[in-house]
Amino acid sequence: MAPPFAGGEEDEEARWCGLSTDMMEMILKHLPIADHISVSIACKSWRLATSDIILPALRAPWLLGSPMASTSLSWGFYTSSNGGQSLGLEIPTEFQRQWCCGSSKGWLMHLREPRNHSQYYEAHLLNPITGATVELPPFPPTVIKGVISTSPFATDFMLAALCFESTNFDKYVIVYQPRHPRRKKILIDNAMDIMFHHGRLYILTDLAELLVGVFDPRWKVSFKSIPTLFEEEGRHPDTYWGKLVESNDGVFVVYCTITTGAERQQLKVFKIKEWGRHHRIVEVKSLGDRTFFVGPFSDGVSISKMKSSSKLNIIKPDHIYYITGSEYSLWAHCMQKRHTFRVEEFKMTGNILEWFIPKLEDRSNLMVVTPTHSTSLLLTIIIVMLAVIGQCLLGWLSI
C-alpha cells in the first residue's frame, strides 16, 4: 500500500477516499468517540465506509451536561453506558452560554437573551454532530421543553414548545411550522409533557389525560382525548410525574407515583393502542428487549436490543432510566422485578443532565471530499493505520 500522501493532491484525495471498510473498521477501534464522529462527517466516501460499522458508544443515548456551579455554561457530552465519562465533545462556543431547553431527534433547542430588550428570546436549533443550525422565530423565555416532528430541513417539519405564563404559571403550547407565518398558541390546562409522533402532537396533562392533536393543511388542529390512565383504578394519585416515550411501534406513557424516598417510587408503563379512529391505553408489564430513557427536556426514547458497550454493564434491557434528585443522579427501574434503584456506577453528580440521541444521517453541510478536514485527525489515522499494518505484518511473519 502506497503512503497516504504520495503523489499530488488528486492522488492524495483518492487514497484517503479509497480506504476499505475493513481498514476503516480496524482504525476506528483505536480511536475515541470524538474521532469516530469526525471520520463519519469528514466526507461522503468516509460516511459510506463507516455506515455499516456499529460504533459501541452510539448504541446508548449520550448525556448532555453542564456544571451547575459554573458561572458560565459549558455544555458537553458524556456516556450513559460507561459511567458518565466525557466523550470529549462540546457544542460550539457561541451556544455555550445559551440555555438548552430541548433535546429532540438529534437536535438541541437553544434560547438566548435578546440584544434589544425584547420580551421574547432568540431561538435556534443546533445539530451538534454536523454543526448545522436553524434560526427560529423568537420564543418566550419560559419554554419548559421544545420538541420537533422531524428534521428541520424536511417539508413537514414542525416544532412545539411547552411554556408557562410568568404571571399565573398557566401552561400552553406554541407550535411553529415554516410554511405558516403565524405560530399557533394552544392553551392546555396542566400540560405535563409533549411529543411528536408521525406528525401528531401528543400532550400529557397532570390529570393523566392524553390529547392527540392532528393538523390539517389549513393549519388548524383538532384534538382527541384518550381516557385517563387511572380510569380503571378509580382514583388519581396525589403527586406523580409522567413522560411520553416514542417507539417504532407506537407511543408509550411512563408515569411514576412520588412517595417518600426515591427507592419507593412506583413506575407504570402504558401503550397507546389504535383501532381505526379510536385510541385506548393498556398497561405494559414488560418492555421486552427495549430500554426506555426519559428526562426533563428531552424526547422520551425507546431503544431495542440494548447492550452495554463497557464492562460496567450499566444499561440493560427491560429497564427505564431517568434522572432525578437535587444531585441529578441516574436512577433505573427494572420492569421484571418492579424494583427502582440508583445506578451507583454512574458518577456524574452535581451536573445538569439530559439525554441526547446522536443523529448522524443529517449531513446537509458535508463537502463532497474533504481529506484534510482535520489535520490532527488525519495524523492520528496515519499513526493508527501504520500500527495496524505493522501488527498484520508481524502476525503474517509469525505464521
Rank of each mutant, 00 (worst) to 15 (best):
G146Y: 03
V147Y: 02
G234A: 05
H339T: 09
L48C: 13
R97K: 15
I188P: 00
N248E: 15
R338V: 05
Y78Q: 02
F95S: 06
K220W: 02
H333Y: 11
D193M: 04
K44H: 12
A160Y: 03
P217H: 04
M68R: 15
C163N: 08
G213C: 06
Q98F: 03
I381V: 14
Y121F: 14
E231T: 11
G276S: 08
T50L: 01
N351H: 15
I281C: 10
I382P: 02
N116Y: 09
I389V: 11
D299T: 01
G131R: 06
I314E: 07
G18C: 08
G84C: 05
L73Q: 14
T370E: 14
P137E: 14
M158Q: 11
H373A: 15
M24Q: 05
I323W: 02
W46Q: 07
Y120W: 07
I37Y: 09
V301C: 06
H278E: 11
T93K: 13
G131H: 07
H30R: 15
R235G: 00
L207T: 13
Q177A: 10
R15E: 07
R15L: 11
I27F: 03
R342S: 10
P114W: 03
M335Y: 05
I314L: 11
V175F: 03
R200K: 09
D22T: 07
P32W: 06
E263I: 09
K224S: 13
H198C: 03
L136Q: 01
T259Q: 06
A57F: 06
E233H: 07
E263C: 10
D206N: 12
I194T: 01
P178H: 06
G276Q: 02
G106A: 04
E231F: 12
L187D: 09
G250N: 03
H333G: 03
A42T: 15
A332C: 13
I281K: 15
W331R: 04
L136A: 02
L353A: 04
T79L: 01
P178V: 01
M26N: 11
S166F: 04
D216Q: 03
Q177R: 11
Y202I: 01
K347E: 14
S66N: 12
G131P: 04
G395E: 13
D35P: 01
L125T: 08
G350S: 10
Q266Y: 09
A123W: 04
Y328D: 12
L89Y: 05
E10V: 08
R97M: 10
L58I: 02
F169A: 05
P140R: 13
D299R: 02
K307W: 00
S302K: 02
W46E: 08
F252L: 10
M306R: 04
L87P: 06
G261R: 12
F5R: 14
P237A: 05
T324A: 12
E232Q: 11
G131T: 08
T71M: 12
L58S: 11
A34D: 13
F223V: 06
T155I: 07
E327L: 12
F230K: 04
Q98C: 10
S38C: 05
A208H: 09
T380A: 14
L162Q: 04
S329Q: 12
F139Q: 10
P317T: 08
N190K: 13
M195N: 02
S298G: 05
Y172M: 06
D35Q: 11
G350W: 00
K171A: 03
L159H: 01
V147L: 02
